[in-house]
């Protein structure tokens, strides 16, 4: 069993609402879409990686490639492919990263069918800080028109017995946070730190 080790010191993040998300014009941007309960109803992934750390790593990965990032909150769906596809169509480069509260992540592109993707990371229990950074970096490289090596996917056959039911529970809770009819919201992450998550 490979459980990712605990995340670095507890960081917190608040997603400050900027306004309705608009289609970007910069060809060098990646849009990061978070799910309805991300950094709101929930504060950490299924393996307790703080959402602040998830966002920080994704953004750092994107920025280290010289690409800019925007963050949007999708409110009317918690379907990973759907929310990432919405974000891809908002993205100036057509590239997006979608992430659910439990940590499941996807890299999507505007021109792909909704149910397709560039890279999918379905096993949320195996996603830790370094993986999120690589995902951000790869998304940025796609935005630059490059073809990066896919982030190595890990496999753990014992993830199912430990995490499958909790993942289902988190999924159900996230669904409860859906606000039907509410469009994507541009948000600004405000990072802080606190004693505990």
């Amino acid at each position: 069993m490979t459980t990712p080790t605990a995340a670095p010191p507890q960081r917190t993040v608040t997603l400050r609402e900027v306004g309705p998300a608009r289609r970007g014009t910069r060809p060098d941007e990646v849009v990061v879409a978070v799910s309805p309960a991300f950094a709101g109803h929930f504060s950490k992934t299924i393996v307790d990686v703080p959402h602040a750390e998830v966002l920080r790593q994704l953004l750092a990965g994107i920025e280290e490639q010289g690409v800019t990032a925007r963050v949007v909150r999708i409110r009317d769906t918690a379907d990973l492919a759907a929310l990432a596809h919405v974000a891809a169509r908002l993205s100036g480069s057509g590239i997006s990263v979608g992430v659910l509260s439990r940590g499941t992540t996807i890299i999507h592109q505007r021109d792909l069918p909704r149910l397709s993707n560039l890279e999918l990371f379905p096993q949320s229990p195996l996603l830790d800080a370094p993986v999120f950074r690589m995902i951000g970096s790869n998304a940025a490289q796609y935005a630059k028109g490059e073809s990066p090596q896919p982030v190595p996917t890990r496999n753990d056959q014992m993830a199912r017995p430990r995490w499958q039911a909790k993942a289902a529970l988190l999924h159900l809770k996230e669904f409860e946070c859906i606000e039907a009819g509410q469009g994507p919201l541009e948000v600004e992450p405000v990072f802080g730190s606190s004693a505990a998550g």
Partner: peptide, 8 residues
């Protein structure tokens, strides 16, 4: 493939 759910 969902055995982790009823199993829990």
């Amino acid at each position: 493939s969902c055995i982790g759910v009823p199993g829990a």
